[in-house]
């Protein structure tokens, strides 16, 4: 159970780094944004995981529910998801402008064009 209980955190680590890898290694701007949103999703997973209470249920008071998982991480992650989608939208808008300005969305090609 203990090792199984840690599995979630390992997945968090792997996801985090998969996203990070895409951000670091991929020159394509949209791919970077995809990586970014994976990266953030990993964090969401981490928060939700440690908000979980064994035997608990979602923190909505109703009949038959006694133990509740912590609502706070969920609140935080709700906010963070919103932040994430906002960032993605803004990033995509930027990519569109970059495509119009440079005709490319590959980082290396853009750098080439920027070099005087």
């Amino acid at each position: 159970m203990d090792i199984l209980g840690l599995y979630h955190y390992w997945v968090f680590a792997v996801l985090l780094m998969t996203g990070f890898y895409a951000i670091v290694a991929k020159p394509n701007l949209i791919k970077k944004l995809i990586g970014l949103s994976l990266f953030q999703s990993a964090v969401f997973l981490c928060y939700i995981t440690f908000g979980k209470l064994a035997g608990g249920t979602a923190p909505i008071v109703g009949k038959g529910a006694e133990l509740f998982s912590s609502p706070l991480p969920q609140v935080l992650i709700l906010t963070a998801i919103v932040v994430s989608i906002s960032t993605t939208a803004l990033g995509l808008a930027l990519v569109l402008r970059i495509k119009e300005a440079y005709g490319s969305i590959e980082e290396d090609e853009i750098q080439e064009q920027d070099a005087p």
Binding site: V43, C46, G91, V95, I98
Partner: peptide, 23 residues
């Protein structure tokens, strides 16, 4: 534009690192 994009990526990574930390 390309500068901002870089900033956006790095800034978000930074903020997310921070988020992991406080998490």
């Amino acid at each position: 534009l390309s500068a901002v994009f870089k900033y956006l990526i790095m800034g978000t990574v930074g903020a997310t690192f921070y988020l992991v930390g406080i998490g």
